[in-house]
Amino acid sequence: MEHLPEWAVLLGNFGFPILIAIYLLTRFEKRIDNLTNAVRDVERLSSRKSEH
């Protein structure tokens, strides 16, 4: 590995974890959006009940 450029070594060391992080973030983004919408729905329902 002595003949590899420095950027290739850095890519080998950090490329895989970065790809995994990007994959997980894009995968969980939809679930986080769904949870956010659910919390907003609960907030709306609780505010309606408190008005009555």
Rank of each mutant, 00 (worst) to 15 (best):
M1K: 14
M1S: 14
M1L: 11
M1W: 11
E2V: 07
E2Y: 03
E2M: 06
E2K: 05
H3D: 03
H3A: 03
L4I: 02
L4K: 04
L4N: 04
E6G: 01
E6A: 05
E6K: 08
W7L: 09
W7P: 03
V9I: 09
V9R: 01
L10H: 08
L11Q: 07
L11H: 05
G12S: 02
G12W: 02
G12P: 01
G12C: 03
G12V: 00
G12H: 01
N13I: 06
N13P: 02
F14K: 07
F14I: 00
G15W: 01
G15L: 00
G15V: 00
G15S: 02
F16W: 04
P17E: 00
I18Q: 03
L19M: 06
L19T: 04
L19R: 03
L19K: 01
I20K: 02
I20V: 14
I20R: 11
I20P: 06
A21F: 11
A21T: 02
Y23G: 12
Y23V: 13
Y23Q: 04
Y23M: 09
L24C: 08
L24V: 04
L24D: 01
L24K: 01
L25R: 04
L25M: 15
L25T: 05
L25V: 03
T26S: 14
T26I: 10
R27L: 13
R27D: 11
F28I: 15
F28G: 10
F28V: 15
F28T: 15
E29W: 15
E29N: 15
E29I: 10
E29S: 14
K30A: 15
K30M: 11
R31E: 15
R31L: 12
I32D: 05
I32M: 13
D33Q: 12
D33S: 15
N34Q: 13
N34P: 11
N34K: 15
L35T: 05
T36W: 11
T36H: 14
T36L: 14
N37A: 15
N37G: 12
N37R: 12
N37S: 14
N37Y: 10
N37E: 15
N37V: 07
A38Q: 13
A38C: 06
A38T: 07
A38L: 05
V39C: 04
V39Y: 05
R40L: 09
R40T: 07
D41I: 05
D41F: 07
D41N: 06
D41P: 00
R44L: 07
R44P: 05
R44D: 10
L45P: 09
S46N: 07
S46F: 08
S47T: 12
S47I: 07
S47M: 08
R48S: 06
R48Q: 08
R48C: 01
K49M: 08
S50G: 02
S50M: 07
S50V: 08
S50N: 07
E51N: 10
E51T: 13
E51M: 14
H52D: 11
H52A: 10
H52V: 10
H52Y: 12
H52F: 08
